[in-house]
Design a protein around this nucleic acid. Structure first.
Length: 472
RNA sequence: GCGCCCAUCGUCUAGCCCGGUCUAGGACACUGGCCUUUCACGCCGGCGACAGGGGUUCGAAUCCCCUUGGGCGUACCA
């Protein structure tokens, strides 16, 4: 085990979204590669906006993606005593001070500053050196930020970044209601958990100098930082619901495989030459911060779909069969008495981009056709087909559990005696068996369905076909 | 407004650090064809980019500066 300690720190104000998942993934990958420690910390200091449902949803999504953590989940709401103590410590050391300005006053000052065209919009430091209030009066606690000098850090992804301290105001670390704020607790916890590398979205770059000041005030070592670029929508705006599904679990619901999402997410912003497909083991071996790009990336649902298609195509039929069964069952399809799931899957792997599509294509295996595509029947079924279908029944009845070759042999026999081409018989069989015109190869369908079931369907269809032909 | 970050095909990217091998490579999407019992898969081909302008240099996608464009922040949210 190395001394690398990283964490993913979502705030439970909604589901786990695509961007958060990628950040979590990068943390996870690096931790596993370096045999370090991956910690999950739930940042729920905003009591108003945090919900249990969101926490559950995030935990669920982490599990689905296979991002297991070594420590946690740790909830900041359980740690308010620690934060209180640290605030008291900074207060005692004069590194923080009580501010009695009301939110209304501040808002007014802010508006004034904007109106006057000032570039200084932050807190003006009114209470910085003031002792004319009793500690009991309503107040927030502000951190005493250095007013001069520069703060620099070397970002592992972006390189050196520096800020002039005079651009920073004294941030609030404790609200009027006594709860601590993000920029403070994030430092307290990262120190307490001995986080050595902070990997997070680059929307936090601006917070970093403030946080560094707090580390310094605490006398704690400053960790390394790696700021990952944002994920944008097709319009280059920050990814939001407008751009389609942004929730990780929504992709599960849409029939995506977790490995597809993981592969997509990691390649959005990170690369290893021209390689597109990565197993998890490969990612753990090859992932590195150096090859993470610096620019924001646009989320491309098409490419994600392509990867999903790939993983469906190459996935283990047994496993996929299990996932398929869940979907089918939820649709009210009884899979128990039907053909084997793995066999069903293997006929559909090249024909489905998502599990949902696969389920669409699989339903006919478990349900006899309720009707037959009328237009197709008219076009594909005539007297010759009916005769051939009848003969096929006879051939198949005696075939028992024929394999693919056996099924093909039965068809060849029928074709030979009737003089029909497969192109003239196949479609009719397909309609009889599935009700429609699109399905896996007809030999495969018969093989998977089994001869007995095939004959039953053929006979059922034959009745309808004969009747249709008469009335025509 | 101010600050920070960023800039190669429509999109994700390779190349950039260590300038010439780049008439800029791969992938998705789009598109033409082939294969074919349906639907698909697959295979072969095509379209398509170094944001603009200045430098530095014999030579710049690669180094420097400016402009433009985009993103993020500027909360008693995280």
């Amino acid at each position: 085990m190395s001394d690398l300690r990283v964490r993913f720190a979502p705030s439970p104000t909604g589901y786990l979204h695509i961007g958060g998942a990628r950040t979590a993934l990068f943390n996870y990958l690096l931790a596993r590669q370096q045999r370090g420690t991956f910690i999950l910390r739930v940042e729920d200091t905003d009591v108003e906006r945090s919900t249990q449902e969101s926490t559950d949803a995030i935990l669920q999504a982490m599990e689905w993606l296979g991002l297991d953590y070594d420590e946690g989940p740790i909830f900041q709401s359980d740690r308010f005593d620690l934060y209180k103590a640290k605030v008291a410590q900074l207060l005692a050391e004069g590194k923080a001070y009580r501010c009695y300005c009301s939110a209304e006053e501040l808002e007014k000052k802010r508006e004034l500053a904007i109106a006057s065209g000032s570039s200084r919009l932050g807190y003006d430091g009114t209470c910085r050196n003031r002792a004319d209030h009793s500690a009991g009066a309503p107040h927030v606690v502000r951190f005493r930020t250095p007013q001069s000098g520069t703060t620099t850090f070397v970002d592992r992804i972006k390189g050196p970044i520096s800020f002039n301290n005079e651009e920073l105001d004294d941030l609030i670390i404790q609200r009027t209601d006594g709860t601590p704020t993000y920029n403070f607790v994030v430092v307290i916890d990262d120190v307490d958990m001995r986080i050595s590398l902070v990997i997070r979205g680059d929307d936090h770059i601006n917070n970093t100098p403030r946080q560094i000041h707090i580390y310094q005030a605490l006398g704690a070592p400053v960790p390394e930082f790696a700021h990952v670029p944002m994920i944008l929508g097709a319009d280059k705006k920050r990814l939001s619901k407008r751009h389609g599904a942004t929730s990780v679990m929504a992709y599960k619901e849409m029939g995506y495989l977790p490995e597809a999402l993981v592969n997509y997410l990691v390649r959005l912003g990170w690369s290893h030459g021209d390689q597109e497909i990565f197993t998890k083991a490969e990612l753990i071996e090859k992932f590195n911060l150096e090859s993470v790009g610096r620019a924001a990336g646009v989320f491309n649902p098409d490419k994600l779909l392509w990867l999903n298609e790939h993983y469906i195509k190459t996935g283990d039929p047994e496993r996929l069969g299990g996932l398929l069964a869940e979907i089918l069952t939820a649709r009210g399809v009884d899979v128990a008495g039907g053909p084997g799931l793995a066999a069903v899957v293997s006929t559909l792997q090249d024909r489905a981009k998502t599990l949902l599509e696969m389920a669409d294509g699989a339903e006919f295996y478990f349900r006899r056709p309720a009707s037959y595509d009328a237009e197709a029947v008219e076009r594909q079924v005539g007297p010759e087909q009916i005769a051939a279908l009848e003969q096929l029944c006879t051939e198949l009845e005696g075939a028992g559990d024929a394999d693919h070759a056996g099924v093909e042999a039965a068809f060849q026999k029928v074709l030979a005696t009737t003089g029909l081409k497969l192109g003239k018989l196949g479609p009719a069989v397909r309609i009889a068996l599935t009700g429609g015109t699109a399905s896996p190869s007809i030999y495969e369908v018969v093989t998977v369905l089994g001869c007995a079931e095939t004959v039953k369907r053929l006979q059922g269809a034959l009745k309808v076909f004969r009747a249709t032909l008469k009335t025509a």
